[in-house]
Write a protein that binds this DNA or RNA. Structure first.
Lengths: 228, 228
DNA sequence: TAGGATAGTGACCGATTACTATCTTATTGC
DNA sequence: GCAATAAGATAGTAATCGGTCACTATCCTA
């Protein structure tokens, strides 16, 4: 009796065997699909690095054919371009929200730093996309966009450092540009370490230990409020 | 008639047209050739990134055919492995020489930092090879080697920081591991900036401006010798 | 409900990849 | 000056890449 039921259960193939692939048959609007492609590209880049992501990989991940991708983007580089633009929008909003939330420039720096690290912890592909010199060489538009992001970020940090100096919170002999470089380097160093220990340590916890050292490096000596 | 000559001119292939490629006909010993392949691989990686260097590129650069490469290395990854090993040997000797040259731990840190930066300035491929997560994914041997280099470097720095603490040169509440992460991040930040401004600024000059900030971050407050 | 618009298919293209099998020739020891 | 050896040339391979093409399925709307 039980055998009979088992065989009957095997038959229905309107759920088409579903072997490892999603049976997503839905037909999406162009805009919606474009966004999905970008998200899938970013996700895949997080797992295996941008340079190893093929358009076939993207198509497989969303359950459609490779050719369909090129109905939504003229070129693979355009997908990366859209991805980087997405990152920029998100990162900027995260950063600016953190900056607005704080009362003095040093607090703003800390807020930005921790917000940035949290953002990266949630989306591990971001540093690999933005700091990847693979994408830097692919397309001149990509190169320019990435350059804009980094230089913009750097000058944003340098501006806050200038304000900190003016408010007597930072050393007067501080070179804002160099300190901004160190700020970005701090992020890169944490990402590198997290890559090597492949997530065994918490990125945010490590970040909280590193930042006081940086803060101590830029802070003026007469302003000795205890660090966190 | 002229056609005849043209055909006749096409025949002699002992001087094979020599278009843009060196007519290097020399036949080298295996060991010598292996070293040349490694050097060429590193040079090409400096120009266009490791992930875009093909074995054909290497062969072209040294004036022989692509197949010849595989007479000296069983696999392309073995070339990268040899390249990374070469980098490790050179970097270690540069760093240790700088460390031996100095009298206290903080001086040693500065010496190592500047020596490292100078080394990188001379060989721009190094950070791209060692910090590249492209190579990290290619081969497990590569991954392990790179991990060894970075963790070894990091613990070397952390050790010096520990000595500095013991000698009263660094803050007692300093987390050596985090400070070592920041040290490496500092290097990465400078490399990134140098990439973006594509060599328009001197890497070493920028380094000399960034290091005092780091030093100030780790130094104890009662030890207030003026910085450079 | 007919028909235009368009998302998606599936086969295919040329180029390029790492790698290999077979032949040729330069070097070297005798 | 003559083999033997090993470096290099030549001409392949199979796989994979981004991208194209003619076509079909589905949706929206007049």
């Amino acid at each position: 009796m039980t055998d009979y039921y088992l065989i009957a259960l095997k038959m229905p193939n309107h759920t088409p065997i579903d072997n490892t692939e999603k049976p997503r048959k839905r037909r999406m609007g162009a805009e919606e699909r474009q966004e999905e492609i970008v998200q899938v590209a970013i996700d895949l880049a997080a797992k295996s690095g941008a340079e190893s992501v093929t358009t076939q990989d993207m198509a497989d991940a969303m359950g459609l054919t490779q050719g369909a991708i090129f109905r939504h983007f003229p070129t693979k580089d355009d997908i990366w371009l859209a991805a980087i633009n997405w990152v920029r929008r998100r990162l900027m909003s995260v950063v600016e929200a953190a900056a607005a939330r704080s009362e003095n420039p040093l607090e703003a720096l800390e807020g930005i730093f921790l917000a940035h690290i949290s953002f990266i912890a949630k989306h591990p592909a971001i540093p690999r996309l933005v700091f990847s010199d693979y994408l830097l060489r692919r397309d001149s538009r990509l190169k320019q966009l990435i350059q804009e992001i980094i230089t913009g970020y750097e000058s944003r940090i340098a501006g806050l450092l200038g304000q900190a100096k003016a408010a007597g919170l930072a050393r007067l002999d501080l070179d804002e540009g160099s300190a901004a470089t160190l700020f970005i380097g701090m992020i890169q160093g944490l990402v590198l370490q997290s890559n090597i220990f492949s997530g065994r340590r918490s990125l945010l916890d490590e970040a909280k230990k590193v930042f006081p050292i940086y803060l101590n490096g830029i802070r003026s000596r007469n302003n000795n409020e205890e660090q966190i």
